[in-house]
């Protein structure tokens, strides 16, 4: 659940800017990218699915390696590399599967009741607290996923933890968005948005501003921390299906949106206007995005059935970056810690 980690990415960016004061951070850093792969192009249940699960590659050149069981249907992930020996949360058809040693060992922490886990988000400051969105509702755990308390009972498309108020949640559902307070104990419906909400992103510096991407209803923006929403009427953004929204870690006025039919939408004015860029992504559904923390203008896009792509010019032109034929559901980039 990359969006939740935005603050961490900004911390990283800030640390790099002031790196002279921190010798350990002033050295060149290397990064690795994590991909949640739902399936390969030809998979059907009962067949072989060697290209699915968690994959890891360095970001300078594609060199993907499986880091989990190969035949999971992985929908989402949350990587906390600094936590312990590397805490990996993954959301799968089989439930929540967790590694606490950077993928060497795994444990299914959910029982038969929790299945089709689609989203997962942990609280970075307290990673024992983790939320999931499933086909049957949202749940909360306070013990690294060992036990779960239900929050809602409806299909969850998107799940976002507020970056300041960690007990506040944004849950995308089929008819809009609900806001959970007190860790989801109380839910209220947001106003002004009635379409399925597939993606949510919070402004890294102005947390009252949020964006939501929908199925067939384009992008929405909120200026009151998600309580009310206004559609963004901007060319191709209107009516688009938006699977992911990404703030540039280097310039929060620069945003990217992953869409089903419009390639990558890019805004350079804080989300008011958007333009589509498809070069290299023609006819490909784009499902998720990630930014290179150390190289402004370098972005990665996950696609549905076509693998990962990379742009080094701010999202204008895209080139293949491996995992061809895979359905990529999520990408995260982290500094290598070990």
């Amino acid at each position: 659940m990359r969006a939740v980690l935005l603050p961490m990415k900004l911390v990283l960016m800030s640390a790099m800017i002031v790196g002279a004061s921190f010798p350990a951070l002033s050295q060149p850093r290397t990064y690795q990218m994590f991909a949640a792969v739902l399936s390969n192009k030809s998979y059907v249940v009962g067949g072989e699915n060697p290209g699915a699960g968690l994959f890891v590659s360095r970001v300078d050149a594609p060199g993907w390696q499986s880091r989990s069981f190969s035949n999971l249907r992985m929908f989402n992930l949350e990587i906390l590399p600094e936590e312990g020996e590397g805490l990996y949360y993954t959301a799968n058809g089989n439930g929540v599967i967790v590694s606490r040693d950077s993928g060497r060992h795994w444990r299914v922490t959910t029982g038969w009741q929790i299945t089709e886990v689609l989203k997962i988000a942990a609280v970075p400051e307290n990673p024992a607290v983790v939320y999931i969105g499933t086909a049957y509702g949202a749940y909360r755990s306070s013990d690294f996923g060992e036990t779960w308390q239900p929050i809602s009972q409806r299909f969850v498309y998107a799940l976002q933890i507020d970056q300041q108020h960690r007990h506040r949640l944004y849950i995308g559902e089929e008819d809009g968005l609900r806001i959970g307070t007190d860790g989801g104990d109380h839910l209220m419906r947001a106003k002004g948005i009635a379409a399925p909400v597939l993606s949510i992103a919070q402004h890294p510096g102005q947390p009252d501003i949020l964006f939501a991407g929908t199925e067939d209803a384009g992008l929405f923006m909120s200026h009151d921390r998600g309580l009310s929403w206004q559609p963004i009427e901007s060319g191709d953004a209107a009516g688009a299906t938006v699977y992911d929204i990404l703030f540039s870690p280097h310039n929060p006025d620069s945003l990217l949106a992953a869409t089903f039919a419009h390639g990558v939408l890019i805004s350079a004015d804080g989300g008011r206007t958007w333009r589509p860029y498809r070069s290299g992504l023609e006819r490909m559904p784009v499902s998720c995005l990630a930014a290179h923390p150390g190289q402004p203008g370098t972005y990665f896009a996950g696609t549905l059935n076509y693998g990962v792509f990379c742009s080094r010019d701010g999202g204008r032109i895209w080139q293949p970056f491996g995992l061809n034929g895979a359905q990529i559901m999520e990408l995260e980039i982290h500094a290598m810690t070990r």
Partner: peptide, 15 residues
């Protein structure tokens, strides 16, 4: 099925 709506027909037709 929980997969992205717009991908479902293509996915199902595989099998």
């Amino acid at each position: 099925f929980p997969e992205p709506v717009k991908m479902l027909v293509e996915d199902i037709v595989k099998s």
